[in-house]
Simulated scan of single mutants.
Amino acid sequence: MRYQYNDQTVYYESAPCCDQQSTVYDLKGNILCHPEGGITGKGDGQCANFNKRRTNEQLVWQDPR
């Protein structure tokens, strides 16, 4: 998914399973944060407000499986 977050375009990749973390990337592919997942389910704490502050959701790719 593509979003606007903190005045920039970012890409969100959901975690494939269980205790893995989802990931938010910048336009260059650098990891910005992990908003949820992991053992606590709260990610890495670097973008705890991601789900509330993201806007302009746009699907850019979906696994057809």
Rank of each mutant, 00 (worst) to 15 (best):
D44A: 07
I39Y: 12
L27S: 15
G29V: 04
E13V: 14
Q58N: 13
N51C: 05
V60F: 00
Q62C: 07
T23L: 01
R65C: 06
Y5G: 03
Q4S: 15
Q21E: 15
D44E: 02
S22Q: 08
L27A: 15
S22C: 10
Y12F: 14
V60W: 00
Q21G: 13
R54W: 01
Y11L: 06
E13C: 12
Q20A: 10
N51F: 15
T55L: 09
C17S: 15
G29P: 06
P64S: 10
R65L: 01
L59W: 03
G37S: 12
V60I: 07
N6T: 03
C18G: 15
Y3G: 13
I39M: 12
G37K: 10
G38A: 03
Y5T: 04
A15F: 01
L59F: 05
C18T: 09
C33Y: 03
N56S: 06
G37P: 09
T23W: 00
G38V: 01
V24I: 14
D26Q: 02
T40S: 14
Y5S: 05
K52D: 06
P16S: 13
P64L: 02
Y12W: 09
P35W: 02
T55W: 06
T9H: 04
P35N: 05
D19L: 07
P16C: 12
N49S: 09
E36L: 02
Y25S: 08
I39Q: 12
D26L: 02
L27D: 14
Q62P: 01
Q4C: 08
W61D: 11
A15M: 02
N56G: 09
N30S: 14
C33M: 05
Q62T: 14
D7Y: 11
G43S: 09
P16M: 11
Q21M: 15
L27I: 13
K42M: 13
V24Y: 04
C47L: 00
W61N: 10
L32I: 14
R53A: 14
E13K: 07
R54T: 00
A15C: 02
I31S: 09
E57Q: 13
E36Y: 03
G37L: 09
Q46N: 14
Q21H: 13
W61V: 10
N51R: 12
W61E: 08
C33H: 03
Y12G: 08
N51D: 12
Y11M: 08
E36R: 10
D63S: 06
L32M: 12
R65V: 06
T9E: 07
K28P: 03
V60R: 00
C33E: 03
D26V: 05
K28V: 06
P64K: 06
R54H: 01
Y5V: 03
L27Y: 07
K28Y: 11
S14M: 10
S22M: 10
K52Y: 04
I31G: 08
P64D: 05
L59P: 05
L59A: 14
Y25P: 00
D19W: 04
N51S: 10
I39S: 15
M1H: 11
T55G: 11
Y5W: 06
C18R: 12
C17V: 09
